[in-house]
């Protein structure tokens, strides 16, 4: 099978992605020497092999644990990480756990609020595309027709905007990139298109 199930994709969107930002911050603090992108990428690789997720009660913990295992394996292979970094391992068990479910709920909700803000920060055309997609649920093909763009252009806007939102959503450091601000008339265009 080429693509992954909608169920897995939705689950990752709701329950894994919102915690990636914290995961990266934690990895950076605990393992200054490690290539954080590399570990995160590998963690998603492993999650991509899941055939079902119902058995995972605590996705946040699962994500942190998966990343921890990736780090452990790298340390064992003496790849990337020096032996000294292994001292960070003691904190591995403690660091990610924090509080229980309320935190997790808040993280999911915050991620959605952040997505809203990030969409508002996109350049004009991309913002229109995303607003039509998200708020009105218009398919890409129809967005192209409504905005008088080719499908390829819409697709590229989606890909580029997605990339940008993904970065900002999941990484504290990259989130500091300046985002543009726009005066209040921004929604009117999308509505006129109806």
């Amino acid at each position: 099978m080429v693509t992954m199930s909608q169920q897995l994709i939705g689950w990752v969107g709701r329950h894994i992605l919102p915690h990636e930002r914290q995961l990266r911050a934690w990895l950076r603090a605990a393992f200054p020497a490690i290539d954080v992108d590399d570990v995160v990428q590998e963690a998603y690789c492993r999650i991509a092999t899941l055939t079902h997720v119902e058995h995972i009660d605590d996705p946040r913990r699962y994500l942190f644990r998966t990343a921890r295992n990736v780090v452990l394996e790298q340390i064992r292979r003496e790849r990337v990480v020096s032996i000294e970094a292994a001292s960070g391992l003691a904190e591995l068990e403690l660091a990610p756990e924090e509080q229980g479910s309320p935190e997790r709920v808040v993280a999911g909700r915050r991620a959605l609020e952040r997505v809203e803000r990030l969409i508002e920060g996109l350049p004009d055309r991309a913002r229109q595309v995303f607003r039509l997609r998200k708020i009105e649920g218009v398919p890409q093909r129809e967005i192209a027709a409504r905005l008088g763009l080719t499908e390829t252009v819409v697709e590229n806007e989606v890909a580029r905007g997605l990339r940008r939102i993904l970065d900002q959503l999941t990484d504290e450091e990259r989130a500091e990139m300046p985002t543009r601000r726009k005066p209040a008339s921004r929604t009117s265009k999308a509505k006129e298109q109806r």
């Binding site: 992954m4 990752v12 998603y44 969409i119 708020i135």
Partner: peptide, 26 residues
């Protein structure tokens, strides 16, 4: 495959109604 999963997951957050609808499965 992992990178694609991550991208698709983010796109699913941008889907219709997700942000407006009450969060049912939190």
């Amino acid at each position: 495959r992992g990178a694609l999963l991550r991208a698709q997951a983010a796109l699913s957050l941008l889907d219709r109604g997700r942000a407006l609808a009450p969060i049912e499965d939190e």
